[in-house]
Amino acid sequence: MTGTATLSKAPAATVIRADYGNADHAADIVKMLRAYAMDPMGGGEDLSSEVQENLVPGLAATPAASSLLAYVDGQPAGLANLMTTFSSFGGKPLLNIHDIVVAKDFRGSGVGRALFAEIETIAQEKGACKVTLEVLEGNIPAKALYASLGYGDYVLDPEMGKALFWQKRL
């Protein structure tokens, strides 16, 4: 399924569901994730050659994984790596946006909104009860986009505060 969104003063972004077996899609997934990794919001360092080599085969081997690619005039402009899991409290699937990136030259042009439109279509197709994502506190432009689309803090009980995203590296 393909979605199209009109960008202000820019060509429309075409969003496709990536095929991990398609060499062009695989190359664009790696290219976009490298751009994200090298951005300050992605840590500011390139992906190792091992990660670059294992990225698409690893996604392909993960049944819960799917990816979207956004193109503008044939150029890769955005990527969303998604993971479908299950909400124990909702009793239905949930769709987690594991990675989302818009190439620097296309930020503010509607590519992110086009990706989110397709993400929400996929969530509806899966009967998901929600879409989740993580965002850095300092990523003000991303937070503004997400809030404008209806995303917000995860809170069960306001007295207990917001949920936090923690990790332990292995």
Score class of each variant (00 low, 15 high):
Ala103Tyr: 07
Ala117Thr: 14
Ile140Val: 15
Glu137Asn: 11
Phe106Gln: 09
Asn139Trp: 10
Ala144His: 12
Phe106Ser: 06
Ile100Tyr: 01
Ala147Trp: 06
Thr84Tyr: 01
Arg113Asp: 13
Thr84Ser: 08
Leu82Ala: 05
Leu133Cys: 12
Asp99Leu: 04
Lys126His: 08
Gly78Lys: 02
Ala128Gln: 04
Gly74Val: 05
Val135Gly: 04
Gly90Asn: 04
Ile122Gly: 02
Asn139Leu: 10
Leu133Asp: 01
Gly74Ala: 07
Ile100Ala: 03
Ala144Glu: 14
Asn81Ser: 10
Gly90Ile: 03
Ala147Thr: 15
Glu118Asp: 11
Leu136Val: 06
Val111Gly: 09
Leu133Gly: 01
Arg107Ser: 06
Ala77Met: 08
Ile140Leu: 11
Lys130Tyr: 06
Val102Gly: 07
Ala77Tyr: 10
Met83Val: 11
Pro93Trp: 12
Ala103Gly: 11
Pro93Cys: 04
Val135Cys: 12
Gly138Pro: 08
Leu133Phe: 06
Glu120Arg: 14
Lys130Glu: 09
Gln124Lys: 14
Val102Arg: 01
Ile140Glu: 15
Ser88Glu: 11
Gly127Trp: 05
Ser148Asn: 10
Ile97Thr: 02
Gly90Ala: 06
Ala103Met: 08
Ile122Cys: 07
Gly112Met: 07
Ile97Ser: 00
Phe116Val: 07
Phe106His: 15
Val135Trp: 03
Leu115Met: 13
Ser109Met: 15
Ser87Val: 02
Leu115Lys: 03
Asp105Ile: 02
Gly112Phe: 01
Thr121Gly: 04
Val102Ser: 12
Val135His: 05
Asn139Arg: 12
Lys130Gly: 04
